[in-house]
Design a protein around this nucleic acid. Structure first.
Lengths: 223, 223
DNA sequence: TCGTATTTTTAGCCGCATCTAAAATTATTT
DNA sequence: AAATAATTTTAGATGCGGCTAAAAATACGA
C-alpha cells in the first residue's frame, strides 16, 4: 500500500464518488467542480495518479479507477467513515458538523490506529449518514439501495442513507423528522413536479420535493 | 488564533521543548537536531515565524518565543497530549506506540473537536507520560517537578513524568517496573557513576544508572 | 590577538500543489 | 463540413518546505 499525499487521497476519493453516480468515466471538469479547484490542477494530478497506476487515463477522454486505485479509495473512505462514527457516537457531534473534521482526520494514515478505532467503535457497518463502511481489505458489503424518488405510490422502504451532506440539507431532514432508519411509505406522487407524499414511521405524513427525494437512499421493504 | 501549517507547528513545539530545558535562547542547530532537518531549513523557518510575530529572533543570536508564540505552542502541545490520552485510555495503545500517531493527529486544528475530546476524556490533567496538559487558554498548571537524579539518599518522591520518549527507554521502564505514579525512595547513591539504589512502592529495590534517573521527573513527597 | 573552527545565514535548486493564460482537442451548431 | 463553443491540456508562475554549497558571522585556541 503506497503512501499518498493528502491531495492525492482527496482526488481518488472524489473520482470514486463521481464514478458511483456517473457511469463509466469521470471528466476533468466534474472533478474540478467537486473538489473546488481548477481544471488545470486536475489535469496535472491525473497525470501523476496515472503514473502511479491508480487511474486509467487517456488525455481528453476522462478517467476511471484501476483496481489498486479503487482499493485505495475505499481505504480512504473507510477512514473517513470510521472517524464520522467516532465524532457522532463518542464526541456527540451532530451529523451536519462532522464533514470537515472527518476529512482532516481521514488523512492520518496509521493502519494500527484505524484497526483499533474500528474495534473501539464496535466494528460499525454504516456511518452516521447511513453509508456503508468498507472493510480493511477495501470491500463494501453492498445491499441494494435505491433513490427515494424512484419509488411508486404504495411502496414501503427504510431510509438508509443520504446522498448530499450539505449542512442545509441535513438540517432540513432533522427539522421534518427524517432520519436514517425511518420507515417510509409512498402515499402519492404528484405528476406535475415529481414531489412525493410520504408516511413516516406509520405516523406522520410529509410532502417532499423531488430535489429532496433524489438525495435520499432507501432499501425496499418486502412489502 | 492564526492558522499555521503543520511544519510551522512542529517548529514552535520544538522551540518550546528546547526552551523548557535550555535556559534563555535556543540555537538553530539545536532545533535542526531535534526535528531532524538541516540548519539551513531552520533559518528559513525562523525568518518566517519571526515575521508572524511568534518568535523573537536576532540573526546568529538564537530564538525565544513571544507570548503569542508560547500560547500557540501550548495549544499544539495540548492537542498532542489529549490525543495521547485518547490513544492509551480508549484505544489501548501502550505508551511507547503513540508518539508518531499523536504527532499526526495534533495537527488537526478544529477547536470544537479539541474541546469535545477533552470533555470525552474527562478533562485529563496529565498525558500518559505524566506531562501536564495545558488548558484551552494555553496555560499550564505547573507543580514543581525535579529530576530523579537530583534526589539524595533518604528522600521520597512520586514519579510524575519521563523526559525521553524513545521506545527503548519506555520499554526499559516497563521491564523494570517503573511507571507514572510509582512511589520511590532513594536508598543510596553511588558516587562513582551517579547511579541510584531505589525502593519502588516500598516493595522492590532497583538499581538505575544516572542516564535513566536524569530522564525521570518526580514530585517530592513531604517525606 | 589572530587565525582557525564552528555556527548560522544566504543563494540557488527541487518537488508538490496550486494558479492564470494560452494552446490543443473535442463537441456542437448551423 | 466549417465555424464556433466548450473542454482539456500545456506552459509558465507562485508559495511552501526541504536540500546543498558557499558566504558571513561568531566562538575559540594557540
Amino acid at each position: 500500500m503506497q503512501k499518498l499525499t493528502a491531495a492525492e487521497e482527496n482526488y481518488l476519493k472524489a473520482i470514486y464518488r463521481l464514478l458511483e453516480e456517473d457511469l463509466e468515466k469521470v471528466s476533468t471538469n466534474e472533478i474540478a467542480a467537486l473538489i473546488q479547484t481548477k481544471a488545470a490542477s486536475v489535469s496535472d494530478m491525473l497525470r501523476k495518479l496515472a503514473e502511479k497506476g491508480l487511474i486509467d487515463y487517456k488525455k481528453y477522454r476522462g478517467v476511471s479507477l484501476t483496481e489498486p486505485g479503487r482499493k485505495m479509495a475505499l481505504h480512504i473512505i473507510r477512514r473517513n467513515r470510521l472517524w464520522e462514527v467516532f465524532l457522532v457516537e463518542k464526541l456527540k457531534f451532530s451529523w451536519d458538523e462532522i464533514g470537515n473534521i472527518a476529512e482532516e482526520l481521514e488523512h492520518v494514515n496509521a493502519p494500527l490506529l484505524v484497526r483499533r478505532l474500528d474495534e473501539y467503535l464496535g466494528f460499525p457497518k454504516f456511518d452516521p449518514h447511513g453509508d456503508p463502511i468498507p472493510d480493511e481489505f477495501g470491500e463494501l458489503s453492498s445491499k441494494p439501495r435505491v433513490h427515494l424518488e424512484a419509488l411508486s405510490p404504495g411502496q414501503a422502504a427504510k431510509i438508509v442513507a443520504v446522498n448530499n451532506s450539505s449542512a442545509a440539507f441535513l438540517k432540513y431532514l432533522d427539522k421534518v423528522g427524517i432520519y436514517i432508519g425511518a420507515r417510509v411509505i409512498v402515499l402519492d406522487q404528484i405528476e406535475f413536479d415529481g414531489s412525493l407524499e410520504l408516511l413516516i414511521d406509520g405516523q406522520k405524513t410529509l410532502h417532499v420535493s423531488r430535489e429532496v427525494s433524489a438525495n435520499i437512499l432507501v432499501m425496499l421493504q418486502p412489502s
